[in-house]
């Protein structure tokens, strides 16, 4: 894997979509904005037409978005796995794309009155008005090749897929659901780490989720952790690495500390491929790497093996 795509994903935890573009640098403006923000009203907004071209960030291969979607958002040329959300994963994994959504009614609350550059509540309201996502994790029950399972999947789009009280609670209730119905549990991680706006409460979710996994383990139900690009911080320091099976998509960045922090600490460049799935496999932290296209078959095969 090339290292040219260097992303400072922990700034995504700030909940600002443009965080990367701006970086941490001071933004000295060489032009003056006359009117603030996008002035086009939603009604006048022109939808981008279907069949738009998409360029692979890894190999620059250009294909249509339709082609990319049919290929499960995997570059047909270099196998680069694009980041996708829970909707797409549920579509890929569940038979006929059918599933029962669980615990959708749980949403984040600004209990601490946390304000950084923006109040936390305002951040939440803004995301809610922009997307259909309620929080950074969705839970669903369904079947994959006829095998019943519960899937909890993160959405990176929602404050960097950050782990807060809501994710902790949904995760826990999903475990309860698995215990009640005796189902295997798959968690798809894609997150920059803990949600700072919930301070120590988000830290305690590491203990909360791990406690729940202990119950799942005692019941002899399988827990599979699928790590996708990126998975960091609190996730890898708790349930992300606690799978009976830990698997990952190819080329995903996975680690405890982010590459930027490590680089600043050791004051050296990081070796190519550092913290990628292949690196983790090599160091013994993954059971295997699964291509998105073979994911469903592998999963159902594993569940079959564990159940018979």
């Amino acid at each position: 894997m090339s290292t040219k795509k260097e992303e400072d994903f922990d700034t995504r935890l700030s909940g600002d979509e443009n965080a990367n573009a701006q970086g941490g640098e001071s933004k000295t403006k060489w032009y003056k904005r006359l009117r603030k923000g996008i002035t086009t009203s939603t009604a006048d907004k022109k939808e981008t037409p279907e069949g738009l071209w998409s360029k692979c960030p890894e190999c620059n291969y250009i294909c249509t978005t339709t082609e990319l979607r049919e290929n499960l958002y995997v570059c047909p040329k270099c196998n680069y796995h694009h980041r996708i959300g829970s909707d797409d994963y549920f579509d890929i994994l569940f038979d006929n794309g059918e599933y029962t959504a669980l615990y959708d009614e749980i949403t984040s609350k600004d209990f601490l009155g946390f304000t950084d550059l923006k109040p936390y509540q305002k951040r939440l309201d803004e995301i809610h008005s922009k997307t259909d996502l309620k929080d950074s994790m969705r839970v669903a029950a369904g079947t994959a090749n006829g095998k019943a399972l519960v899937v909890a999947c993160m959405d990176f789009e929602f404050i960097g897929g950050s782990l807060g009280s809501v994710m902790g609670e949904k995760f826990s209730r999903a475990v309860d659901y698995c215990l009640e119905h005796r189902l295997p549990y798959l968690v798809i991680s894609k997150s920059g780490g803990a949600r700072m706006m919930e301070s120590a409460f988000s830290l305690m979710q590491l203990a909360k989720t791990s406690g729940k996994l202990a119950l799942l383990s005692d019941a002899g139900l399988p827990y599979i952790s699928l790590l996708t690009d990126p998975t960091f911080g609190g996730i890898s320091a708790s349930f992300g690495m606690l799978g009976d099976l830990n698997i990952a998509e190819p080329g995903a960045l996975i680690g405890f500390a982010g590459p930027r922090v490590i680089k600043e600490t050791i004051k050296k460049d990081l070796p190519p491929g550092f913290q990628r799935s292949e690196f983790l496999l090599e160091h013994g932290f993954l059971d295997f790497i699964a291509d998105r296209k073979s994911l469903k078959d592998k999963l159902s095969q594993l569940i079959e093996l564990l159940q018979h």
């Binding site: 996730i235 890898s236 320091a237 992300g240 690495m241 680690g255 405890f256 500390a257 982010g258 922090v261 490590i262 600490t265 050791i266 050296k268 990081l270 070796p271 550092f274 913290q275 160091h283 013994g284 932290f285």
Partner: peptide
Amino acid sequence: AYPGLEAEERGQGE
């Protein structure tokens, strides 16, 4: 926890 290269190799998160 120490954010170092070897720490990651040896699985700090795990």
